[in-house]
Design a protein around this nucleic acid. Structure first.
Lengths: 229, 229
DNA sequence: TCTACACTTAACAATTACATAATGTCTTTT
DNA sequence: AAAAGACATTATGTAATTGTTAAGTGTAGA
């Protein structure tokens, strides 16, 4: 039987007392925790901490829980990270919007330790099952494993550098769909970084070269797409 | 030869007669026992007594057996503690729910001493085997023993310092999976401690050096992963 | 107290990824 | 067919990242 790693939980709330309370409870249950007191901090911490689950207060100054969740859901890393909303009292309205926006559960304050633990457990277990299936992208003879950062073609390893891997993953995430050069830049390099257009070509070339076969089709004047022949 | 400690059993039932009866039987077989008469007391006693096995009555006032078990399972200490349910008569429904919730066995009342002893024995034996397997990680020629803090490669001992051992254990816990530097820091050093990035490299180097072979692969710009060649 | 060892850091070396420029090839347009 | 536009290819310098070594610090044990 394999040893299970403790799961990482990010706790976001603007009230220090609540953070303290939740933090204590979850830590004593063996979880690895990190905290944030507003939406902006939450997003920053999420990037470095890479939590397995996020507990997110709905009512916060500046950026509220809903808005924070929306922004997180756009980022590939947190597209599927489970989120449990913390809401003040039975507020039917926000419950519905919360679940619609892509939260996985919600807990009403005041928070009861047992309930918290149960919900956290349930959501994490559910997620773990999904993960196992989702971690591998299988595209014919090509297998891309995001957690292993590995690519194999017909069982043979293809060793790609970071940018190459991310580029291929992006294209392969929607086979057949054309990604505009702009979009590729945004998603692989980020919005701040500015690199020339040729850079993409060069990376594409390296992937084609290393793979030996060509899954990437150039759509002139538009972009690139992944396609098995 | 290692001295075997008597195993500790926590008996939970709301009827004093039954507690008395079970207690007498198990004590006479050499077990160390402790009792509780309801769910709340059971959880409290469990924390201090740290039983190897829990006999848990299903039907209890206030907090029933199922609920108690659920709460116990959330706590790291009792995540894997074997539990045998005591149910009144052949109650198919509760049997099923009991086993689903993570009980290891069940005994129907009225309790027969021989049956009790047999079941208790069986469950404890099963657990002991699981333990042994769980504590060792076997990865090809590499064996990592978490309880003994020892590592052998092809039968030869590799003596690692604590941090080195923890680092290797972490990587080996999910072979192939890449651990980001950030995650390594959080999991081996904890979220409070702040150490420089080179620290990881140095530890990695010592492991590679001491092992003679290299199970650890660097993924530049990403992290490290464990991989047998 | 002395010694040994674990751990961290700093400084530097080595390596690698990456972006770019320059040039080549192909395609489309006129 | 020439020219322009678009991508491919190659080579190369640099920036980023990791490897290595040695030395400093602290701590436990002899």
């Amino acid at each position: 039987m394999m040893q299970e790693l403790p799961e990482k939980i990010l706790i976001v709330d603007d009230e220090p007392d609540i953070i303290e309370f939740i933090n204590y409870n979850l830590k004593s249950k063996g979880y690895l925790t990190e905290t944030a007191s507003n939406g902006v901090e939450a997003i920053r911490k999420a990037k470095t901490f890479q939590p397995d689950l996020i507990l997110l207060d709905m009512m916060m100054p500046e950026k509220d829980g809903l808005q924070t969740l929306r922004e997180l859901r756009v980022m590939p890393d947190f597209e599927k990270t489970p989120v449990i909303f913390l809401t003040a009292m039975r507020d039917e309205k926000s419950e519905i919007t919360g679940l619609q926006t892509g939260a996985d559960d919600y807990i009403t304050k005041p928070i009861k330790p047992e309930l918290l633990a149960t919900r956290v457990n349930a959501v994490l277990r559910r997620m773990k099952k999904d993960r196992e299936v989702e971690e591998k992208m299988i595209l014919g003879d090509l297998i891309i494993n995001k957690t292993k950062y590995s690519v194999t073609y017909k069982g043979v390893d293809i060793i790609l550098a970071k940018k190459e891997f991310e580029l291929l993953s992006l294209l392969a995430s929607k086979p057949g769909r054309v990604f505009l050069r702009n979009e590729i830049l945004q998603r692989v390099w980020g919005s701040e970084v500015i690199v020339g257009d040729r850079t993409i070509d060069v990376h594409i070339r390296k992937i084609r070269q290393k793979a030996g076969v060509d899954f990437i089709t150039t759509v002139k004047g538009v972009g690139y797409k992944f396609e098995m022949e």
